[in-house]
């Protein structure tokens, strides 16, 4: 590998790095159909008005509990789900309503790594065919050049070339996730949605895959949207972090701002609830919130977190707090009437 001063790439400056992807009030609602005639009786508001931007070369971590809409955002950006409102801008271009053929060339630039390395790879195909298929389909390689490309991809993710004739079941979870990463890389993407890529893996393997993702980002200048519920992994890989609750972003900021100075009660509770691998800290003060996450089909009025928030006041029940950027802090914003 060529040596170069990588510090330039590592920390993109917010002012200079250009925005790769922008979401403006994005909504993805699913109809709830009931009865014999399948009439629409309501909507599951999986993503309900999300605005954020992802800058070139950064990793935006998206965290939240199950059902908060974090995976739906990833799938909506890639147009695997159709949004029901708002805009998706990719390199400044509105792709929200792009037709399938118009979307096709963009798909080489935007790829996805899935959570479950067991169900996201075709068990009937050899590894080399799994990797060749996207390249051949998009005309990125010909039958004669594809083999060399497969070797290059396997090298990049640390799978021995000699394994390319094997089937998926012959690999462990971590190796399968590497193959999933190789497949995402096969089209030379710019932007990758990583949907809980390490959640299904063992601890020692998680570290391998996280390190690999970080190395590849540095080498290839990739931009990631990294979706996860494990805060440790998110902290390790992200430049900035957005915290979601019930279809909305409740706080967004740089990694340090979110972890050192969380402003939203939910963020603080989430950080606090995470079991710390240090037995000396077991007696620490903890805020345990009661109850479950309400249904996204019928979210609470006002601030959506008010039903579980220990600091909720009358205003929180009535008025929804906007996600406003804090003037002094440049880009660190929390949607809360009484920020901490």
């Amino acid at each position: 590998m060529i040596e170069f001063d990588s510090s330039v790439l590592e920390r993109p400056q917010p002012e200079t790095a250009s925005t790769l992807l922008q979401l403006n009030g994005l909504k993805t609602h699913y109809p709830i159909r009931k009865g014999l005639l399948g009439r629409v009786r309501g909507h599951v508001k999986a993503v309900d008005g999300v605005s954020l931007d992802i800058r070139e070369g950064e990793t935006l971590g998206l965290v939240g509990e199950s059902g908060c809409g974090k995976s739906t955002i990833g799938r909506t950006i890639l147009r695997l789900e159709q949004s029901t409102g708002g805009q998706i801008l990719y390199k400044g271009e509105d792709i929200t309503r792009y037709s399938t053929p118009k979307m096709r060339p963009l798909r080489t630039e935007m790829q996805m790594i899935f959570q479950d390395p067991f169900s996201s790879l075709n068990p009937w195909m050899r590894v080399k065919d799994i990797l060749k298929e996207p390249m051949l389909a998009h005309g990125k390689a010909t039958a004669s050049t594809a083999d060399a490309e497969v070797d290059r991809l396997l090298d990049a993710v640390g799978i021995p070339r000699s394994y390319k004739d094997r089937y998926v079941h012959e690999f462990s979870g971590g190796q399968r996730q590497r193959i999933g990463i190789a497949r995402a890389l096969s089209l030379n993407p710019k932007f990758i949605v990583c949907d809980e890529p390490v959640s299904a893996l063992d601890v020692s393997i998680q570290a391998q895959v996280l390190n690999l993702l970080k190395e590849l980002q540095k080498e290839l200048g990739l931009t990631y949207l990294f979706i996860a519920h494990g805060l440790g992994a998110v902290k390790y890989i992200s430049t900035r972090i957005a915290v979601m609750y019930l279809g909305k972003v409740v706080e967004i900021g740089t990694k340090d701002e979110i972890f050192r100075n969380p402003k939203h009660p939910y963020t603080r509770i989430l950080l606090n609830a995470y079991p710390v691998p240090n037995p000396h800290l077991r007696g620490r003060e903890k805020i345990v919130v009661q109850g479950d996450v309400p249904s996204p089909a019928n979210p609470p009025s006002g601030c959506r977190f008010h039903t579980r928030c220990p600091f909720a006041q009358e205003l929180c029940r009535q008025e929804e707090p906007p996600l406003a950027a804090d003037g002094t802090n440049g880009g660190h914003a929390a949607a809360c009437h009484f920020t901490l």
């Binding site: 393997i205 570290a207 970080k214 440790g232 390790y236």
Partner: peptide
């Protein structure tokens, strides 16, 4: 030792490379 050092700690400052145990079980 490997397991302990491969967990990303929330309060860690150093965010370079995470320790990892090579290979699989």
């Amino acid at each position: 030792i490997g397991l302990m050092s491969s967990i990303p700690h929330l309060d860690a400052d150093d965010d370079e490379t995470l320790a990892s145990i090579p290979g699989t079980v």
